[in-house]
Structure formats: C-alpha cells, structure tokens
Amino acid sequence: MRVRTMERTKIPRENGIFGLYLITRIAIFDGKVLREKMKSFFSKMVIYPIAIAIFLLLSTQAAFCQVSRSHTVTVIVNPVTVMQLSTGTVNLNITGADAIAGQDEMSVTDQSTTIYWGTNCLAQKITIETNLDPQQFKVMSLAVSQTGGTPVEAEISTTPKDFLRDIERSSGNTRVRYTGIALASQGIGTDSHLITFTITTQ
C-alpha cells in the first residue's frame, strides 16, 4: 500500500530519469511493480534511445578516435650584448710625404678595423677610450659604413667617448676610421695606444 502511494504522488512522468530511480527503489519492495514499470518505461522509449545512440556514435566518433596530451615549454632569452673587433694592430705613420709646405698639420687615416656587435637590448652605444696619457699626437675616431646607430666623431682620450650611439636591438657592424694628426711643430715621436671599445646602455 505504501509503495503504490509513492507511485501516484512522486512519479508524475514515468519516462523521467528520476522516475526510473524511484521505480528501482520501488522494485526493492515489490518485484511485480518492477516488471510493470520497466515494461512501460522502455516501451515508451524505443525511438529515443536509438536516436540518442546514433547521435552519440556520430558526434563522438572523432573524439574517441583521437587522444591528446599537453605540456608546457618555456623559452627565455636573456639580455645578450656582444662585440668583436676584426683586427689587432693599426699603424698610423705620418711620414711627411704628404706634407704641404707652409701648413703645420699633417694627418693619416686608417679604416682597416671593423667592429661587429649584436644586442637584444634597447638603446645601446659604443664608446672608445685609450690607455695612453699624455699623448704627443692627436688621434680622432669615427664610425663609417655603419649598418646601424649614429656615428660620433671623437678625439681619443682616457675618458670614454661616444663612438656610435642609438644602436637598437640588432646585429651589425661598422668600420673604424682612425685619423692620426701631428703638427710639424710637435717634432717626431711614437704614441702607442691600447684602444678599448665598450658597448653599453646609453
């Protein structure tokens, strides 16, 4: 009697999932009810399960024919700034062969040196300095044929001077033009420089 009351009050639609659950529970008490309700439930649901099965089969075909796995790969690039010089020794010989009578200043130039750089940092510059102090003769430097940056002409001294400014993230090169300048009044002599180029943040 109790079972039948539950049927009437709590199973408004016999084809609901909750209904099936209750039917199962009812069956614990009454095997007869189970058979009746199962028959009713499935007979009314012949078309829908087939339709659902076909739908699932089609829609999940691709899904269960492939399987995926992922992992994380991290790429870090450190700040890197590098520089290299092409040649070691440069000789600037003022022989007087090109001297002009009546003119005190004599000069000679050299462009045999190339500087290569690479930087992935913003706003870099290359400076130039010498270890020689004092100097008898003047030496000027200038970047020529550069692939990047802005050249600055400078007289070489023990104080770092800008040689090439505004170098952006790049890989490039430039020629170095040295100009040795002597005055006839300075007489003769030899200056031996150790020139240092430095690439640094501007």
Partner: peptide
C-alpha cells in the same frame, strides 16, 4: 615541462 634559456650570441651574427 622544459625551460630553455638562450644566453649567448655571436657579434655580427645571431643568438
């Protein structure tokens, strides 16, 4: 999960 760090480069070339 690997981590790859680029630390060096070649002047006039590339990392």
């Amino acid at each position: 999960d690997p981590t790859m760090t680029i630390t060096t480069g070649i002047a006039g070339g590339q990392l």
